[in-house]
Amino acid sequence: NQESVVAAVLIPINTALTVGMMTTRVVSPTGAPAEDIPRLISMQVNQVVPMGTTLMPDMVKGYAP
Rank of each mutant, 00 (worst) to 15 (best):
Y63T: 03
V48T: 15
M56N: 04
N1Q: 14
Q2Y: 13
Y63G: 03
N14A: 06
T18E: 13
M51V: 10
Q44F: 10
P12S: 08
V6E: 00
T54C: 05
I13L: 12
P29C: 08
T23L: 10
T18V: 09
M56A: 02
V6R: 01
L17V: 06
A8T: 11
V60A: 02
L10F: 12
M51C: 11
S4A: 04
Q44L: 11
P57N: 04
V5I: 14
G52M: 05
V26N: 12
P33V: 06
M51H: 04
R25S: 09
V5T: 00
P38H: 12
G20I: 10
V45W: 03
L55E: 00
Q2G: 15
L55P: 00
V27E: 05
S28F: 15
I13R: 13
V49P: 01
M59D: 01
N46Q: 06
V6W: 06
P33S: 05
Y63H: 03
T23F: 09
K61P: 13
V26M: 13
A32H: 04
N46T: 13
P33R: 07
E3K: 12
L55G: 02
E3F: 11
V45G: 01
S4P: 02
G52F: 07
Q2R: 10
P29G: 04
V19D: 09
M56T: 08
N46G: 04
P50L: 10
T30Y: 14
I13A: 15
V19I: 14
M43A: 05
M56H: 07
V48F: 10
T30G: 11
P33M: 05
L10E: 13
P33G: 02
S4R: 05
N14D: 13
I37H: 01
M22Q: 08
G62R: 00
P65M: 10
L55N: 02
A7I: 09
V60E: 06
D36A: 05
I41L: 10
A34W: 07
S42F: 08
T53M: 12
M51Q: 15
P65G: 10
P33L: 09
G52L: 07
G20K: 14
V6N: 02
L40C: 04
D36L: 06
P50E: 11
A8F: 09
N14F: 11
K61R: 15
T18R: 10
I13M: 14
K61M: 13
P33T: 04
T24R: 13
D58H: 15
M43E: 04
V49G: 04
L10N: 14
G52Y: 06
P29F: 06
D36S: 05
I37V: 07
V9I: 12
T18S: 10
V9N: 01
M56P: 05
T54P: 04
V9S: 03
A32P: 03
D36H: 06
P12Y: 09
M22L: 15
V26F: 12
T23K: 08
V9A: 02
V49I: 15
E3A: 13
E35Y: 14
Y63S: 03
G20V: 10
V26T: 09
S28W: 13
Y63E: 03
T54D: 03
I13S: 11
P29W: 02
N1W: 11
G31W: 02
T54K: 01
V9T: 11
I41S: 01
S4D: 02
K61H: 13
V48E: 15
L17M: 05
I37F: 01
S28N: 13
G62S: 05
L40T: 01
N14E: 05
T24M: 07
M59G: 02
M59H: 05
I11T: 01
T53N: 08
V26K: 12
Y63C: 00
T54L: 03
V45D: 01
N1D: 15
S42Q: 09
A8Q: 05
M56G: 03
L10R: 12
V6Q: 00
A7F: 08
M56I: 06
P38G: 11
Q44E: 14
N1V: 14
A32M: 15
I37P: 01
E35A: 14
M56F: 07
T24F: 09
D58S: 15
G52A: 03
Q47I: 09
T54A: 04
T23Y: 10
T30I: 15
I13Y: 12
L10H: 15
S28D: 14
A34E: 03
R39Q: 10
L55K: 02
Y63V: 03
T54W: 00
M21C: 08
D36G: 01
S42R: 09
G52R: 00
A34R: 05
T23C: 10
V27D: 06
T18P: 06
A32V: 15
A34I: 07
V60W: 01
V49T: 04
G31Q: 01
G62W: 06
D58V: 07
P65I: 11
E35D: 11
T15C: 09
A34Y: 04
L55C: 07
P29K: 01
Y63F: 06
I11L: 00
M59A: 05
S42M: 10
T23E: 10
R39V: 12
T53C: 12
T30S: 14
Y63P: 04
A16M: 13
G52E: 04
S28I: 13
S28H: 14
A34N: 04
V60K: 03
L40N: 02
L40M: 04
A32F: 15
A16Q: 14
T15Y: 02
P65N: 10
A32E: 05
R39P: 04
P57G: 03
T53K: 11
V6Y: 00
V26H: 12
T18N: 06
V48Y: 10
M59L: 07
V6H: 01
A64C: 15
A64G: 12
A8S: 10
M43N: 04
T54H: 04
T23N: 08
E35V: 12
M56W: 03
Q44P: 03
N1M: 12
A32R: 00
V9L: 06
D58C: 14
M51S: 11
P38F: 10
R25Y: 07
E3G: 10
V5M: 02
V60H: 02
V45C: 05
L40F: 04
D58R: 13
P38T: 09
L10Y: 14
V27L: 02
A64F: 14
G31A: 02
V27M: 06
T53S: 14
G20D: 13
V60T: 02
T18I: 08
P65C: 10
A64H: 14
P57I: 08
S28Y: 14
P50V: 09
A32Y: 15
Y63N: 04
V48I: 14
M43Q: 05
S42C: 11
P29Q: 04
I13D: 10
N14W: 15
D58G: 13
A7Q: 03
M22S: 08
I41Q: 00
L55I: 14
E3T: 08
D36R: 01
Q2E: 11
T54R: 00
I37N: 00
A8E: 01
T23S: 11
T53V: 11
L40R: 02
P57R: 05
T54Q: 02
M21Y: 01
K61F: 13
M51W: 05
P50M: 09
P12W: 09
V6P: 00
R25A: 13
I37D: 01
L17D: 06
G62Y: 02
R39I: 12
G62M: 05
V27Y: 00
A32L: 15
T24V: 11
V5A: 02
T30L: 15
Q44K: 14
I41Y: 00
N14T: 08
P29A: 02
Q2V: 14
S42L: 08
S4M: 06
M43R: 11
A16I: 15
Q44S: 10
P57W: 15
Q47L: 09
N1H: 13
V9W: 00
L10K: 08
D36Q: 02
A8H: 06
M22Y: 00
V27S: 03
M22C: 09
G31S: 05
V26C: 12
V45Y: 00
V19E: 13
G52S: 01
V49K: 02
S4T: 05
V45N: 01
K61T: 15
K61L: 11
Q2C: 15
P29S: 04
A7D: 00
L17C: 07
V48C: 15
T15V: 09
L17P: 05
K61W: 11
V27C: 08
P12Q: 10
V48K: 13
M22A: 08
N46K: 10
A34T: 05
G52C: 09
V45E: 01
I41G: 00
M22T: 08
L17I: 07
A34G: 09
M56Y: 06
N14R: 00
T23H: 08
I11Y: 00
S4G: 00
I41H: 00
S42E: 05
R25P: 08
P29Y: 01
M51Y: 06
P65A: 11
P50W: 09
Y63Q: 04
R39C: 12
L55S: 01
I11G: 01
T15Q: 05
T54E: 06
G52N: 07
A7E: 03
N46E: 03
R39G: 06
Q47S: 04
A34C: 09
P65S: 11
N14I: 08
N1P: 14
T18Q: 12
T15K: 04
V60P: 05
T53G: 08
L40K: 01
T30K: 15
T23M: 13
L10P: 04
P12V: 09
I37S: 03
M59S: 04
